[in-house]
Computed example of a mutant assay.
Amino acid sequence: MVISWIFFTLMAAFMQAWRNAFQKQLSTTVDIWGVTLARFIFGLPLAIIYLQCLYIYLPIGNDVHFSTSYWIYIIIAAIAQILATALMVQLFKQKNYAIGVGLAKSEAILAAIIGVVFLSDQLSLFAWFGVLLGGIAVFLLSRGYQFSGFSPKTLIIGVGSGLCFAITSILVREASLELSMLPTIHRASWVLLSVISVQCLFMMFYLGLFSRQTLVALWNRLGLTFKVSLCSFMASLGWFTAMSMISVPIVKTLGQIEIIFSLLISAYFFKEKLVKSEYWGLGLVVLAAILVIWA
Protein backbone atom coordinates (compact mmCIF):
# COMPACT_ATOMS: atom_id res chain seq x y z
CA MET A 1 0.00 0.00 0.00
CA VAL A 2 2.81 2.45 0.92
CA ILE A 3 4.66 1.88 -2.34
CA SER A 4 1.41 2.21 -4.30
CA TRP A 5 0.34 5.63 -3.02
CA ILE A 6 3.89 6.96 -3.37
CA PHE A 7 4.07 5.77 -6.98
CA PHE A 8 0.70 7.30 -7.92
CA THR A 9 1.58 10.59 -6.18
CA LEU A 10 4.93 10.90 -7.96
CA MET A 11 3.26 10.11 -11.29
CA ALA A 12 0.62 12.78 -10.60
CA ALA A 13 3.22 15.39 -9.65
CA PHE A 14 5.32 14.68 -12.76
CA MET A 15 2.37 14.86 -15.16
CA GLN A 16 0.98 17.97 -13.46
CA ALA A 17 4.27 19.79 -14.00
CA TRP A 18 3.97 19.12 -17.74
CA ARG A 19 0.28 20.00 -17.76
CA ASN A 20 0.98 23.40 -16.20
CA ALA A 21 3.65 24.09 -18.80
CA PHE A 22 1.28 23.21 -21.66
CA GLN A 23 -1.57 25.18 -20.06
CA LYS A 24 0.60 28.26 -19.87
CA GLN A 25 1.40 27.89 -23.59
CA LEU A 26 -2.27 27.47 -24.45
CA SER A 27 -3.30 30.51 -22.37
CA THR A 28 -1.48 32.81 -24.83
CA THR A 29 -4.13 32.18 -27.54
CA VAL A 30 -7.15 30.75 -25.67
CA ASP A 31 -9.18 32.40 -22.90
CA ILE A 32 -9.39 31.22 -19.30
CA TRP A 33 -12.47 29.02 -19.74
CA GLY A 34 -11.09 27.46 -22.89
CA VAL A 35 -7.84 26.51 -21.15
CA THR A 36 -9.94 25.11 -18.29
CA LEU A 37 -11.99 22.97 -20.69
CA ALA A 38 -8.78 21.75 -22.35
CA ARG A 39 -7.95 20.07 -19.07
CA PHE A 40 -11.03 17.83 -19.26
CA ILE A 41 -12.24 17.51 -22.85
CA PHE A 42 -10.06 14.57 -23.96
CA GLY A 43 -9.91 13.26 -20.40
CA LEU A 44 -13.46 11.91 -20.65
CA PRO A 45 -12.81 9.28 -23.38
CA LEU A 46 -9.50 8.43 -21.71
CA ALA A 47 -11.29 7.85 -18.39
CA ILE A 48 -13.87 5.60 -20.09
CA ILE A 49 -11.14 3.55 -21.78
CA TYR A 50 -9.17 3.28 -18.52
CA LEU A 51 -12.21 2.06 -16.56
CA GLN A 52 -13.06 -0.54 -19.21
CA CYS A 53 -9.48 -1.83 -19.28
CA LEU A 54 -9.46 -1.99 -15.50
CA TYR A 55 -12.53 -4.24 -15.43
CA ILE A 56 -11.07 -6.42 -18.20
CA TYR A 57 -7.67 -6.97 -16.60
CA LEU A 58 -8.73 -6.70 -12.93
CA PRO A 59 -12.30 -8.08 -12.96
CA ILE A 60 -14.40 -7.95 -9.80
CA GLY A 61 -17.79 -9.43 -8.95
CA ASN A 62 -19.12 -6.52 -6.91
CA ASP A 63 -21.74 -4.18 -8.36
CA VAL A 64 -21.22 -0.46 -7.86
CA HIS A 65 -23.89 1.63 -6.09
CA PHE A 66 -23.84 5.44 -6.14
CA SER A 67 -25.37 7.13 -3.11
CA THR A 68 -26.84 10.63 -3.01
CA SER A 69 -23.87 11.74 -0.90
CA TYR A 70 -21.53 10.43 -3.59
CA TRP A 71 -23.07 12.65 -6.27
CA ILE A 72 -23.10 15.67 -3.97
CA TYR A 73 -19.38 15.21 -3.35
CA ILE A 74 -18.73 14.70 -7.07
CA ILE A 75 -20.65 17.77 -8.24
CA ILE A 76 -19.09 20.11 -5.67
CA ALA A 77 -15.61 18.68 -6.31
CA ALA A 78 -16.06 19.10 -10.08
CA ILE A 79 -17.13 22.74 -9.76
CA ALA A 80 -14.37 23.50 -7.24
CA GLN A 81 -11.74 22.06 -9.60
CA ILE A 82 -13.08 24.14 -12.50
CA LEU A 83 -12.82 27.29 -10.37
CA ALA A 84 -9.36 26.29 -9.10
CA THR A 85 -8.12 25.75 -12.65
CA ALA A 86 -9.60 29.03 -13.88
CA LEU A 87 -7.91 30.90 -11.02
CA MET A 88 -4.60 29.15 -11.75
CA VAL A 89 -4.83 30.16 -15.41
CA GLN A 90 -5.56 33.73 -14.29
CA LEU A 91 -2.28 33.62 -12.36
CA PHE A 92 -0.45 33.09 -15.65
CA LYS A 93 -1.47 36.64 -16.56
CA GLN A 94 -0.12 38.20 -13.36
CA LYS A 95 3.28 39.90 -13.35
CA ASN A 96 4.13 38.19 -10.07
CA TYR A 97 3.00 34.77 -11.34
CA ALA A 98 5.58 32.79 -9.36
CA ILE A 99 4.41 34.23 -6.03
CA GLY A 100 0.79 33.48 -6.89
CA VAL A 101 1.59 29.87 -7.79
CA GLY A 102 3.46 29.51 -4.51
CA LEU A 103 0.35 30.73 -2.68
CA ALA A 104 -1.82 28.31 -4.70
CA LYS A 105 0.37 25.51 -3.36
CA SER A 106 -1.05 26.24 0.09
CA GLU A 107 -3.48 23.48 -0.90
CA ALA A 108 -1.80 20.87 1.34
CA ILE A 109 -2.01 23.08 4.45
CA LEU A 110 -5.60 24.12 3.71
CA ALA A 111 -6.62 20.51 3.06
CA ALA A 112 -5.10 19.49 6.41
CA ILE A 113 -7.01 22.23 8.26
CA ILE A 114 -10.33 21.44 6.50
CA GLY A 115 -9.90 17.72 7.11
CA VAL A 116 -9.16 18.12 10.81
CA VAL A 117 -11.88 20.72 11.48
CA PHE A 118 -14.74 19.32 9.39
CA LEU A 119 -13.97 15.64 8.78
CA SER A 120 -12.25 14.57 12.01
CA ASP A 121 -9.06 13.60 10.16
CA GLN A 122 -6.05 12.95 12.35
CA LEU A 123 -2.43 13.78 11.50
CA SER A 124 0.61 12.88 13.56
CA LEU A 125 3.06 15.53 14.75
CA PHE A 126 5.57 14.45 12.10
CA ALA A 127 2.89 14.70 9.41
CA TRP A 128 1.91 18.23 10.50
CA PHE A 129 5.55 19.27 10.53
CA GLY A 130 6.02 17.82 7.05
CA VAL A 131 2.93 19.64 5.70
CA LEU A 132 4.08 23.01 7.13
CA LEU A 133 7.65 22.46 5.97
CA GLY A 134 6.41 21.66 2.48
CA GLY A 135 4.46 24.93 2.41
CA ILE A 136 7.56 26.92 3.39
CA ALA A 137 9.61 25.08 0.76
CA VAL A 138 7.18 25.88 -2.05
CA PHE A 139 7.08 29.52 -0.93
CA LEU A 140 10.88 29.71 -1.21
CA LEU A 141 10.92 27.97 -4.57
CA SER A 142 8.28 30.35 -5.95
CA ARG A 143 10.45 33.28 -4.76
CA GLY A 144 7.61 34.37 -2.54
CA TYR A 145 10.10 36.21 -0.36
CA GLN A 146 10.47 38.77 -3.17
CA PHE A 147 7.50 41.02 -2.48
CA SER A 148 8.34 43.67 -5.06
CA GLY A 149 5.25 44.30 -7.12
CA PHE A 150 3.18 42.04 -4.91
CA SER A 151 -0.53 42.79 -5.16
CA PRO A 152 -3.59 41.87 -3.09
CA LYS A 153 -5.13 40.56 -6.31
CA THR A 154 -2.39 37.95 -6.65
CA LEU A 155 -2.88 36.99 -3.00
CA ILE A 156 -6.63 36.48 -3.47
CA ILE A 157 -6.27 34.55 -6.72
CA GLY A 158 -3.44 32.36 -5.40
CA VAL A 159 -5.03 31.46 -2.07
CA GLY A 160 -8.43 31.10 -3.74
CA SER A 161 -6.98 28.59 -6.18
CA GLY A 162 -5.32 26.67 -3.36
CA LEU A 163 -8.56 26.60 -1.36
CA CYS A 164 -10.59 25.33 -4.32
CA PHE A 165 -8.01 22.62 -5.04
CA ALA A 166 -8.07 21.64 -1.36
CA ILE A 167 -11.89 21.34 -1.38
CA THR A 168 -11.68 19.25 -4.55
CA SER A 169 -9.14 16.88 -3.03
CA ILE A 170 -11.06 16.43 0.23
CA LEU A 171 -14.36 15.73 -1.55
CA VAL A 172 -12.74 13.36 -4.05
CA ARG A 173 -11.53 11.26 -1.12
CA GLU A 174 -14.96 11.40 0.54
CA ALA A 175 -16.63 10.29 -2.71
CA SER A 176 -14.16 7.42 -3.01
CA LEU A 177 -14.95 6.28 0.53
CA GLU A 178 -18.64 6.12 -0.44
CA LEU A 179 -17.76 3.28 -2.86
CA SER A 180 -16.55 0.97 -0.08
CA MET A 181 -17.94 -2.06 -1.93
CA LEU A 182 -15.13 -1.77 -4.49
CA PRO A 183 -11.33 -2.19 -4.36
CA THR A 184 -9.38 1.06 -4.02
CA ILE A 185 -8.20 1.31 -7.62
CA HIS A 186 -11.73 0.72 -8.97
CA ARG A 187 -13.15 3.32 -6.59
CA ALA A 188 -10.67 5.90 -7.80
CA SER A 189 -11.45 5.17 -11.46
CA TRP A 190 -15.21 5.63 -10.95
CA VAL A 191 -14.63 8.91 -9.10
CA LEU A 192 -12.31 10.09 -11.86
CA LEU A 193 -14.84 9.28 -14.59
CA SER A 194 -17.68 10.90 -12.62
CA VAL A 195 -15.81 14.14 -11.94
CA ILE A 196 -14.56 14.52 -15.53
CA SER A 197 -18.04 13.77 -16.91
CA VAL A 198 -19.65 16.50 -14.81
CA GLN A 199 -16.90 18.95 -15.75
CA CYS A 200 -17.13 18.26 -19.49
CA LEU A 201 -20.93 18.52 -19.55
CA PHE A 202 -20.90 21.76 -17.57
CA MET A 203 -18.12 23.42 -19.57
CA MET A 204 -19.39 22.32 -23.01
CA PHE A 205 -22.91 23.52 -22.16
CA TYR A 206 -21.64 26.89 -20.89
CA LEU A 207 -19.23 27.56 -23.76
CA GLY A 208 -21.70 26.25 -26.36
CA LEU A 209 -24.22 28.85 -25.20
CA PHE A 210 -22.03 31.84 -24.39
CA SER A 211 -18.61 31.47 -26.03
CA ARG A 212 -18.53 29.32 -29.14
CA GLN A 213 -15.47 31.17 -30.39
CA THR A 214 -13.58 29.61 -27.48
CA LEU A 215 -14.40 26.14 -28.81
CA VAL A 216 -13.11 27.23 -32.22
CA ALA A 217 -9.88 28.50 -30.61
CA LEU A 218 -9.40 25.12 -28.93
CA TRP A 219 -9.96 23.35 -32.26
CA ASN A 220 -7.30 25.54 -33.83
CA ARG A 221 -4.83 24.42 -31.12
CA LEU A 222 -5.96 20.79 -31.13
CA GLY A 223 -2.51 19.27 -30.63
CA LEU A 224 -1.71 21.43 -27.60
CA THR A 225 -5.23 20.91 -26.23
CA PHE A 226 -4.72 17.14 -26.39
CA LYS A 227 -1.38 17.44 -24.56
CA VAL A 228 -3.07 19.41 -21.77
CA SER A 229 -5.89 16.84 -21.53
CA LEU A 230 -3.57 13.83 -21.56
CA CYS A 231 -1.25 15.20 -18.88
CA SER A 232 -4.23 16.33 -16.81
CA PHE A 233 -5.87 12.91 -17.06
CA MET A 234 -2.68 11.14 -15.97
CA ALA A 235 -2.21 13.62 -13.11
CA SER A 236 -5.81 13.24 -11.91
CA LEU A 237 -5.55 9.46 -12.16
CA GLY A 238 -2.52 9.59 -9.90
CA TRP A 239 -4.03 12.06 -7.41
CA PHE A 240 -7.41 10.34 -7.18
CA THR A 241 -5.90 6.89 -6.71
CA ALA A 242 -3.39 8.05 -4.10
CA MET A 243 -6.07 9.99 -2.19
CA SER A 244 -8.27 6.89 -2.16
CA MET A 245 -5.47 5.12 -0.30
CA ILE A 246 -4.30 7.71 2.25
CA SER A 247 -5.25 11.13 3.63
CA VAL A 248 -5.18 14.17 1.35
CA PRO A 249 -2.60 16.33 3.23
CA ILE A 250 -0.07 13.50 3.14
CA VAL A 251 -0.55 12.98 -0.60
CA LYS A 252 -0.46 16.69 -1.41
CA THR A 253 2.66 17.31 0.68
CA LEU A 254 4.57 14.57 -1.12
CA GLY A 255 3.02 15.90 -4.34
CA GLN A 256 4.80 19.22 -3.81
CA ILE A 257 7.78 17.48 -5.37
CA GLU A 258 6.01 18.62 -8.55
CA ILE A 259 7.85 21.90 -8.22
CA ILE A 260 11.15 20.05 -8.53
CA PHE A 261 9.95 18.54 -11.80
CA SER A 262 8.86 22.03 -12.92
CA LEU A 263 12.28 23.48 -12.15
CA LEU A 264 14.00 20.62 -14.00
CA ILE A 265 11.76 21.25 -17.02
CA SER A 266 12.64 24.95 -16.87
CA ALA A 267 16.35 24.22 -16.50
CA TYR A 268 16.42 21.64 -19.32
CA PHE A 269 14.20 23.36 -21.86
CA PHE A 270 14.63 27.03 -20.96
CA LYS A 271 18.21 26.89 -19.60
CA GLU A 272 17.21 28.71 -16.41
CA LYS A 273 19.64 28.55 -13.47
CA LEU A 274 18.64 28.04 -9.84
CA VAL A 275 19.30 30.73 -7.26
CA LYS A 276 20.53 29.95 -3.73
CA SER A 277 17.07 30.10 -2.11
CA GLU A 278 15.79 27.55 -4.61
CA TYR A 279 18.43 25.05 -3.50
CA TRP A 280 17.20 25.54 0.07
CA GLY A 281 13.63 25.07 -1.14
CA LEU A 282 14.50 21.84 -2.95
CA GLY A 283 16.11 20.47 0.19
CA LEU A 284 13.05 21.35 2.27
CA VAL A 285 10.70 19.70 -0.26
CA VAL A 286 12.71 16.48 -0.01
CA LEU A 287 12.74 16.68 3.80
CA ALA A 288 8.97 17.31 3.89
CA ALA A 289 8.43 14.31 1.60
CA ILE A 290 10.53 12.08 3.89
CA LEU A 291 8.59 13.25 6.95
CA VAL A 292 5.13 12.53 5.50
CA ILE A 293 6.22 9.10 4.21
CA TRP A 294 7.70 8.29 7.63
CA ALA A 295 4.56 9.58 9.36
Score class of each variant (00 low, 15 high):
residue 261 F to N: 00
residue 295 A to V: 12
residue 286 V to P: 05
residue 67 S to Y: 08
residue 185 I to S: 12
residue 79 I to A: 10
residue 22 F to C: 06
residue 98 A to M: 08
residue 141 L to R: 05
residue 101 V to E: 08
residue 240 F to P: 01
residue 187 R to M: 11
residue 295 A to K: 15
residue 255 G to H: 05
residue 159 V to M: 14
residue 31 D to C: 06
residue 74 I to Y: 06
residue 246 I to S: 03
residue 42 F to P: 09
residue 263 L to I: 11
residue 264 L to I: 15
residue 70 Y to P: 08
residue 251 V to F: 09
residue 189 S to K: 06
residue 289 A to P: 02
residue 191 V to P: 04
residue 240 F to E: 03
residue 236 S to L: 15
residue 52 Q to P: 00
residue 98 A to I: 05
residue 99 I to C: 00
residue 9 T to P: 02
residue 226 F to V: 14
residue 24 K to Y: 13
residue 223 G to D: 00
residue 289 A to W: 02
residue 92 F to Y: 09
residue 87 L to M: 07
residue 194 S to I: 10
residue 257 I to V: 15
residue 198 V to Y: 09
residue 49 I to S: 07
residue 70 Y to C: 04
residue 277 S to P: 09
residue 127 A to R: 00
residue 91 L to M: 07
residue 235 A to G: 05
residue 141 L to N: 10
residue 186 H to M: 14
residue 272 E to K: 13
residue 240 F to K: 05
residue 231 C to D: 00
residue 166 A to K: 15
residue 42 F to L: 14
residue 52 Q to V: 15
residue 200 C to Q: 10
residue 232 S to V: 08
residue 256 Q to E: 08
residue 71 W to D: 10
residue 274 L to W: 09
residue 102 G to H: 09
residue 57 Y to Q: 08
residue 1 M to Y: 01
residue 219 W to R: 11
residue 40 F to S: 11
residue 58 L to P: 00
residue 179 L to C: 09
residue 84 A to E: 02
residue 260 I to R: 04
residue 119 L to M: 13
residue 209 L to I: 12
residue 226 F to L: 13
residue 92 F to R: 13
residue 279 Y to W: 12
